[in-house]
Amino acid sequence: MSNIPSQKRSISVTVNGTTYYRDVAARTLLVHFLRENLNLTGTHFGCDTGHCGSCTVIANGKLIKSCMMLAIQADGFTIETVEGLANPDGSLSPIQQAFSDNHALQCGFCTPGIMLASKYLLQHNPQPTEEEIRRGIKGNLCRCTGYVNIVRAIQGLAAETVQKGDLVK
């Protein structure tokens, strides 16, 4: 009977280093699981079609949109959300600091997703060109910034990476 959408299944998911064991309805989207079950409301829900990117998280090392995946599909996964970005002492990580310094956020709604997309981009391409940066975040919509300062923040981080070593581990 496990194909009844409202029927619950047991899963375990490790989010930002903590492993959670939860019973969750088979049809619950990962984004809703993070927000409603784990109260990690920094991952946002902005569309119903996987286009806006405000629900972006890193799952098993892949950049995904958590509204495009069921929570039960994430059973056993390791997930990083915006709440995991800060340094262990609570201070801002370089990526968060770069977004603030460059005024790369206004309302802040898309920001968690864009920071995770930026992190993923820099992990895989530490010295991206402007075009590569733009392609790297094109799955994330921002209506406030015209993307200008977001691109600048990522460019700044890439430059800093050269000076200070790996900033986006």
């Binding site: 409301t41 915006v82 603030s100 956020l105 802040g108 709604f109």
Partner: peptide, 13 residues
């Protein structure tokens, strides 16, 4: 900024 980049903003939802 600090609350927003930490995912600690409080939005209506």
């Amino acid at each position: 900024d600090e609350r927003l980049v930490k995912g600690q903003g409080r939005f209506a939802d």
